[in-house]
């Protein structure tokens, strides 16, 4: 696994994958949104507002998927001390936070015509709000240290604690929301959904996954260059110090 710890090798691999991921993203999102907007039928209860589902639900999936991905990367980073895993976790966090935010806002926009309010303390939305806060905490902790290595390790531990807690939080919030109000309108009761709605949903979800892959690869590349810049800066400073000492001596 440490084969790809070499930055040059990783960058070569990333450069080979990136064109496919980028083209795949464009194609999947193009087809998915075309189907979602033009082909898929309106819902018999919710009418055309159901089209918000095609961004809301895949965003929610992505927000959860990316947190798990961060947790896996964090475990790899902590156990095998693999440097790329740290970078992958750091690169993923803003993307996950973006999707969580998108889920919240589209949920609110969907909820307005359905519930009549901009915000309802519905179980799913509330869990997503907490997940969004978990992302913010992860990002804040990553950037809270002078020494970036410490930030990586602290954030990795936090991500693992978070991923163990997510099922507990989810369960407790569901329990709480069913105690306080009837079930939500955002029904997505698995197999009963009609194929003409399921296909666009799945294709958009694939597009989001490929988008995530593209952005994460670019961000890791960027982080690798940043690390090299820091090393060069340090070398310049050291060289200057050596020169200064030579002049004084």
């Amino acid at each position: 696994m440490h084969r790809f710890a070499n930055p040059a090798r990783f960058t070569r691999l990333a450069d080979r994958i990136l064109p496919f991921a980028a083209v795949g993203t464009v194609v999947a999102l193009g087809v998915g949104f075309y189907l979602a907007l033009f082909v898929a039928p309106g819902d018999y209860q919710q009418g055309e507002s159901v089209r918000i589902m095609y961004v809301h639900v895949p965003s929610a999936w992505m927000a959860m998927f990316i947190y798990v991905a961060i947790a896996v990367a964090s475990a790899v980073a902590l156990i095998w001390r693999h440097p790329l895993a740290d970078l992958a976790a750091k690169a993923s966090s803003p993307v996950g936070a973006g999707f969580a935010f998108l889920t919240l806002v589209t949920g609110s926009l969907w909820g307005r015509p359905m519930w009549g309010t901009w915000w309802e303390w519905d179980g799913r939305l509330t869990s997503m709000l907490i997940l969004f806060f978990l992302y913010l905490g992860h990002m804040a902790l990553l950037n809270a240290f002078e020494d970036s290595q410490r930030g990586y390790r602290a954030a990795a531990i936090l991500a693992l604690v978070g991923v163990v807690n997510i099922p507990i939080i989810k369960f407790s919030v569901d329990w709480w929301s069913t105690l306080h109000q009837p079930a939500s309108v955002m029904r997505l009761d698995g197999p009963t959904i009609h194929p003409s709605m399921l296909w666009p949903l799945l294709i958009v979800a694939v597009g989001f996954k490929l988008y995530y892959l593209t952005v994460v690869l670019l961000r890791i590349k960027s982080e690798l260059i940043a690390a090299r810049l820091r090393a060069l800066d340090l070398a310049t400073v050291k060289a200057a110090e050596v020169q200064g000492q030579a002049v004084q001596g």
């Binding site: 907490i130 978990l134 804040a140 902790l141 809270a144 939080i169 407790s172």
Partner: peptide, 12 residues
Amino acid sequence: LIPLLVLPLYVP
């Protein structure tokens, strides 16, 4: 930072 990290985990 502590509240940001800890409060979401206090929810259950």
